[in-house]
């Protein structure tokens, strides 16, 4: 007769396997990352100045263009270019603003081009307003209801650099009927080089 040992039973085995399975399910399906990853979204409209704690941001104008013309090249849109003029004012220290993307109603995301003097990022010293222009090539069905997302954290597939940080999401204000009109119009835009914003755009006259 043996002492000090316990028989391994089906009941005990089922308990252990069940506990492990339940643990795996909890880790897999509970949205435990949401609280850690979600950025602080600050929503606004074109022309409104948004406080992102590290900067004040104003989208000053939104245009649409078939063609962008720069100093040494011209770029033709695959769809149409949405040209977003924005002014950044860093409030805490020199700041790089690396994130810029448009999101449409279907959840598709569009990143800006760096052709013809368009910016994909900006960098500003505190105390000055810095003007920059982003140009996004988007398809026809992305125009209506699109929003632009701007932040200091860079855009990536999983927005990893924007976790737990302030992010601006601005309605571009394009209605379905306006989208049709904008799509049909043939416009050429010459993007302005980035620089100090004039007082009319919320700057300090440069």
């Amino acid at each position: 007769m043996r002492h000090g040992r316990r028989r391994i039973t089906w009941k005990g085995t089922a308990l252990v396997v069940g506990a492990v399975t339940a643990g795996c399910a909890l880790v897999t399906y509970l949205p435990q990352d949401k609280g850690v990853d979600t950025p602080f979204i600050v929503e606004g409209q074109v022309g409104e100045t948004l406080d992102l704690t590290y900067a004040e941001l104003t989208v000053t104008d939104v245009r649409v263009a078939d063609t962008l013309t720069g100093f040494s090249e011209a770029a033709a849109a695959g769809g149409t270019f949405v040209v977003v003029d924005a002014t950044w004012r860093a409030t805490q220290g020199e700041t790089s603003f690396l994130g810029a993307e448009i999101t449409d109603r279907q959840g598709r995301r569009f990143w800006p081009t760096d052709l013809t003097g368009c910016s994909t990022s900006a960098n500003a010293q505190p105390g000055y307003a810095w003007r920059t222009t982003y140009c996004f090539d988007v398809p026809r069905d992305a125009l209506a209801g699109a929003t632009v997302r701007l932040a200091r954290g860079g855009q990536s597939e999983d927005h990893a650099d924007q976790r737990r940080d302030a992010v601006a999401v601005i309605e571009l204000g394009i209605t379905p009927s306006e989208a049709e009109t904008l799509w049909e119009a043939e416009e050429t835009v010459v993007p302005e080089e980035p620089g100090y914003a004039p007082a009319s755009a919320g700057g300090s006259e440069g």
Binding site: A75, A76, G78, G79, F110, D114, L115, D137, V138, P139
Partner: peptide, 18 residues
């Protein structure tokens, strides 16, 4: 090279044919 304008596209956005 993007044949339409001779530029080198860095980003290929969704829903567009290049």
């Amino acid at each position: 090279v993007n044949i339409k304008d001779g530029t080198s596209p860095i980003i290929l956005n969704p829903g567009l044919t290049y």
